[in-house]
Design a protein around this nucleic acid. Structure first.
Ligand SMILES: [Mn+2]
Ligand SMILES: [Mn+2]
Ligand SMILES: [Zn+2]
Ligand SMILES: [Zn+2]
Lengths: 141, 141
DNA sequence: AGATATAATGAGAATGATAATCATTCGCTC
DNA sequence: GAGCGAATGATTATCATTCTCATTATATCT
């Protein structure tokens, strides 16, 4: 069986995906956390032949179609995740750790905002930055 | 006159800044839009001697102190801006243009969230992605 | 002030993620 | 199955960011 494919889907009616683009898309969906292009490349490599350039190109394509989004990781590399995973984080400026929020605090807000702007919103990014408790304590020594 | 210095200040009581760190801080405040490290370097260079490494280190330091924030630019480089400028954008996935929101829609939400998490929030990032009207029209051809 | 310890700076080299090349292969239509 | 544009992949080129280390500024103490 070929089985599961997170059925490339979203608000945006995007063109058919190629086999490799679909693999990249699926790879992101199989992971809980966001992945860098390099990590995704290693992951996919274990199951099939695919070039690094193709991974980067697929990510770019998927992003243009509004199927995936990216955020800047602590080490400067881009971290990709499916748009459907509406997940946000509190990220510590000191240690770089990210703590997930238990739910999106602006889903409703987006719905209110949409009709008031001449722009078709596909998704949003939201992240809070500051100090985690351990780091905050170490601060005031 | 030496004049204006955006009086390094914020919710976070940060250590004194060095002359160059202050220059970087001021440089960002003099610009309307967010700047990349390289752009900022060129800008500062016109007025004073400063090394590229110093600019990067200053940005890192200021970021740790919660005085500035960064977002990932369209071309992959980090764009820095003062934390005090609480500005958000609608960014088009197609043409890359960013349309500023007239006000921050979650300032109040952040205040509500803060007491419920074991984390000292300095600031947040929020951005909407999708298609601007022109691009959305061109789409359904 | 002079001596000393510590942090900041800068020129340049090293790193590493991402983009560009270009020859080859794939997917489709006729 | 020939024709053709899009996709792929091995490789190289870019270029933002980090690292090294010698030099210099700043703070502290006598
Ligand atoms: Mn959300
Ligand atoms: Mn805001
Ligand atoms: Zn921390
Ligand atoms: Zn557009």
């Amino acid at each position: 069986m070929k089985s599961d494919s997170p059925s490339q889907e979203s608000a945006t009616h995007s063109p058919r995906l190629t086999r490799h683009q679909q693999a990249v898309f699926d790879g992101l969906h199989q992971q809980a956390a966001a992945l860098s292009a390099q990590e995704l490349y290693s992951l996919l490599r274990q199951r099939q032949a695919i070039g690094l350039a193709t991974v980067y190109r697929a990510l770019e394509t998927l992003k243009l179609h509004g199927l995936i989004k990216s955020r800047m990781g602590a080490n400067g590399e881009a971290l990709y995740s499916p748009v459907v995973s509406d997940q946000h984080y509190l990220t510590c400026l000191q240690c770089g750790q990210s703590f997930p929020l238990d739910h999106c605090p602006i889903q409703e807000l987006e719905n209110h905002l949409q009709p008031s702007v001449p722009f078709k919103i596909y998704y949003h990014t939201l992240e809070f930055f500051g100090l985690c408790t351990p780091c905050a304590d170490t601060k005031g020594t």
